[in-house]
Design a protein around this nucleic acid. Sequence first.
DNA 1: TGACAAAAATTAGATATCTAACTATAATAG
DNA 2: CTATTATAGTTAGATATCTAATTTTTGTCA
Lengths: 149, 149
Amino acid sequence: MKHDAVMLMGRIHDLTQKWLRGELAAAGLSGIVPSHGDVLALLFMKGEATMHELAAFAHRTKPTTTVLVDKLEEMGLVRRAQSEDDARSGVVALTAEGESLRGSFAAISKKLASRVYSPLSKDEGEMLEKLLNKVLSNLEAAKNAESAK
Amino acid sequence: MKHDAVMLMGRIHDLTQKWLRGELAAAGLSGIVPSHGDVLALLFMKGEATMHELAAFAHRTKPTTTVLVDKLEEMGLVRRAQSEDDARSGVVALTAEGESLRGSFAAISKKLASRVYSPLSKDEGEMLEKLLNKVLSNLEAAKNAESAK
DNA sequence: TGACAAAAATTAGATATCTAACTATAATAG
DNA sequence: CTATTATAGTTAGATATCTAATTTTTGTCA
């Protein structure tokens, strides 16, 4: 055992992120990065969401999410509105132009999965997910234990 | 199968990087990030190396490596010298102070491995490495095929 | 040998991300 | 009811990274 799983995951992460940027640019979405894709992914599912929800879903901080949504708004893909119940809170929703990208994003997402899983059998793919979930759960548990001091 | 291995690896990568920064800071090395650790790791093995070698080993670009080495030099952990054979080329070497950190880095590295592998059996750890290597090899092959047009 | 391509490194400029601090509103407790 | 605390979001400032361009030196080939 080489104990190099962290390094291997880091490399895979780098390569997939870089590939995704290329695919997005090729789809006419240059300037859009994977994190923007995560924001849009939640909107494709829910129609609209608060900044708080988007940040949690994309695993980014709130300031980062502000910047991500700013960019998507400039590009005309989403629109901000005020919540009626809570004056602090805003709601982000897809525009028609944003909605029109649903298919492109689904295609890129499918292509990514196929790229990563293609060298694995069905059993191996399932095993990989199981092992990664184990590792991740354990890291999150350790983190929570430590932050609770 | 959820086809979420990429997302899982991204999360694990984020958490381990953040944890590493905390450990480095706790060891009195605040400002040092994991990439600096990669640079030092090669120097611990080889004693000295060119910028080119360091960049390849750390999987960073040359400009990034320049910045990393600048910082380590400011902190007094490494020293630059000119190569005798090739006037273009420099050689980066550990100082005594840099060398003195070998033990701390080894300890952190061991702690990281234990953190990640602890929820897995020996067989599972080996399986995870095997699957990650398969995925990574395939991605690198695909990338090379594409960049060769 | 002399021009041109390849290689080592740096500089310049851009960007995605973070933490910390701030503003404004809502909820809660005495 | 008022004072404190919590929550939603943005702004400000810092940093690690990248790509593109530049400089300097080496190697090659006609």
